[in-house]
């Protein structure tokens, strides 16, 4: 196997060390074998979660592994502590990605304030499981977005086009 492909199986060690140093005391040192071991652990973690997420996908006869599948897999595999902040993170990410003017205009036209409710296109993909009001501290899995109204949301540019393919 070529060296390049081997390298690609792990996170870059500089990134890994930088993250470790942010959590360690300033005087701490990290041995070389520990650095390599962490690299291996991270790849194993990704593969472990991905396999579980993909299994769920296949059971539901979907082709695309989504962020929700990943969060679900983490809860199932004992990483509940991760799923909560990641759900918040994903929500914030979608808010930041939902910037195109067409989305903003469409939301305004529908009398929806983006700062108060979730953008309607989230509901149209059927991923309401992890949606919740950011102001609430609770974390729950119930779908609270059933009332999405008729017609749904259609935009000229859809940044989640690859997610839509789930419905096909």
């Amino acid at each position: 196997m070529a060296g390049v492909r081997e390298q690609d199986q792990y996170m870059p060690i500089a990134n890994v060390i930088r993250i470790m140093r942010r959590i360690l005391p300033a005087h701490a040192k990290i041995s070389d074998d520990a650095k390599e071991t962490i690299q291996e652990c991270v790849s194993e973690y990704i593969s472990f979660i991905t396999a579980e997420a993909n299994e769920r996908c296949q059971r539901e006869q979907r082709k695309t592994v989504t962020a929700e599948d990943v969060l679900w897999a983490m809860e199932k595999l004992g990483f509940d502590n991760y799923a909560h902040p990641l759900s918040l993170y994903l929500h914030r990410y979608r808010e930041s990605e939902g910037e195109p003017a067409s989305v903003r205009r469409a939301s305004s036209a529908m009398g929806i304030n983006n700062n108060m409710v979730h953008p309607p296109y989230i509901n149209s993909h059927g991923f309401g499981m992890f949606d919740f009001d950011p102001s609430s501290q609770g974390f729950y899995r119930d779908d609270h977005n059933a009332a999405s109204g008729s017609g749904g949301f259609v935009a000229p540019f859809d940044p989640y086009a690859n997610i839509k393919r789930d419905a096909l």
């Binding site: 996170m11 470790m20 991270v42 695309t64 990410y93």
Partner: peptide
């Protein structure tokens, strides 16, 4: 196939894992 959000979520998850 994986959605565009999946690697983004993993990036944050791996940071927490490390």
């Amino acid at each position: 196939m994986i959605s565009a959000e999946t690697p983004v979520v993993f990036a944050k998850a791996c940071e927490m894992f490390i």
